[in-house]
């Protein structure tokens, strides 16, 4: 929508201004005769000039050099003025006033030139309005991005101390303590390492897929003690993808979902499959788990998954993708994002 046309008073103001210009021109060129014709003609020029807004909007002013913008402004105002002059000529011709006709025709070049200048002025105003608008949008986007990052941080904090996971793990340790000293120690070490890794990685902007993979493996080694042989794990991360950079704790919430909504809700349990591979210049990570199709909560992965989607989108704007698929037995989450190694991240 054109900014002038969005409210009635600005439309009125704009055209009244042009009618006044028309009246002034009538005095300047033909000593105040043919006032209505001049007013109508200049209101028409005002109307035609509005079209340059759409030119300004379509060219993407952020990318343009100033000289290009001036060039486009001149061309568009020349085109607009040409149409206008043709209309003006027809209007004067049809008035049947021969005196007026000669007066206008002798000054046609000046009328055309001043008209083009005025149209160019409108173009410049459009340019200013649009850049102000874009700047405002940019600021809003920056604020939104900041809020997303903040949310991610909170989520990361929450993941570190997921109370269910923590207390259930401690209960397992308490169970093992009396009978199996070796496994008790193993589990204590695994839990500590997992907590430490979430603490250090959570404070970074990016981690390698290798680091995230190791964190997930630690998490799964603890869950394996809890869930026993109900949980089987197959991890296949292609060596080419190991150095790919991702936001920290991106995969862990997805794996947690796979257990909570998938394998842990199946009596017989099942196999969790995690794969990562290169596809051209993209990395594709797939997390697949069996689930109970009659359990409705298995499909709604809620907050955790939305959050991962948004964080992925914030890290790789327009270049990443998270999709989910469910068939009769398996639920699959697929992430796709560009491979960036540590060095070339901006």
């Amino acid at each position: 929508m054109h900014p002038f046309l969005s409210n009635r008073s600005s439309v009125l103001f704009y055209f009244v201004l042009w009618i006044l210009i028309g009246a002034a021109s009538s005095f300047f060129f033909v000593h105040g005769t043919a006032l209505p014709i001049f007013c109508a003609a200049y209101a028409g020029l005002g109307g035609l000039s509005l079209s340059s807004w759409f030119v300004v909007r379509s060219i993407g002013i952020r990318m343009m050099r100033p000289s290009m913008l001036i060039g486009i402004g001149i061309v568009s105002s020349v085109v607009i003025t040409s149409f206008w002059l043709a209309g003006f000529y027809v209007l004067v011709q049809s008035s049947g006033d021969t005196l007026l006709r000669t007066a206008v025709l002798t000054q046609f070049r000046t009328i055309g030139f001043t008209g083009a200048i005025m149209s160019l002025l409108v173009f410049a105003i459009h340019l200013l309005l649009l850049s102000a608008q874009e700047q405002r949008i940019q600021q809003e986007e920056a604020i939104q991005l900041k809020m997303l990052a903040r949310e991610a941080e909170l989520r990361a904090l929450r993941t570190q101390i997921d109370p269910h996971f923590l207390f259930n793990s401690l209960n397992s340790i308490s169970a093992l303590a009396l009978n199996d000293g070796k496994r008790t120690r193993e589990m204590t070490v695994a839990l500590s390492e997992y907590l430490r890794a979430t603490l250090t990685q959570g404070s970074q902007d990016f981690v390698s897929l290798q680091d995230e993979g190791e964190l997930v493996e630690r998490y799964l080694s603890i869950e394996k003690i809890r869930l026993g042989n109900r949980l089987q794990v197959s991890i296949d991360i292609s060596p080419a993808t190991l150095q790919a950079q991702i936001p920290p704790l991106l995969l862990q919430p997805l794996v947690e979902n796979s257990l909570r909504h998938g394998i842990a809700s199946l009596i017989e349990g099942g196999m969790l499959t995690i794969t990562a591979m290169m596809h051209n210049t993209d990395v594709i990570v797939e997390i697949k788990n069996p689930f109970d199709p009659s359990d409705r909560s298995a499909r709604s992965r809620g907050m955790g998954q939305d959050n991962v989607r948004r964080r992925l989108a914030a890290a790789f704007p327009d270049l990443s993708h998270l999709s989910t698929a469910a068939d009769e037995r398996y639920y699959t989450v697929t992430l796709r994002f560009p491979f960036t190694s540590g060095g070339n991240l901006s």
């Binding site: 209960n171 397992s172 308490s174 169970a175 003690i225 809890r226 869930l227 026993g228």
Partner: peptide, 10 residues
């Protein structure tokens, strides 16, 4: 969880 049942049993 097997281990959780074990604690109660103990």
């Amino acid at each position: 969880e097997d281990l959780a049942r074990m604690v109660i049993r103990e």
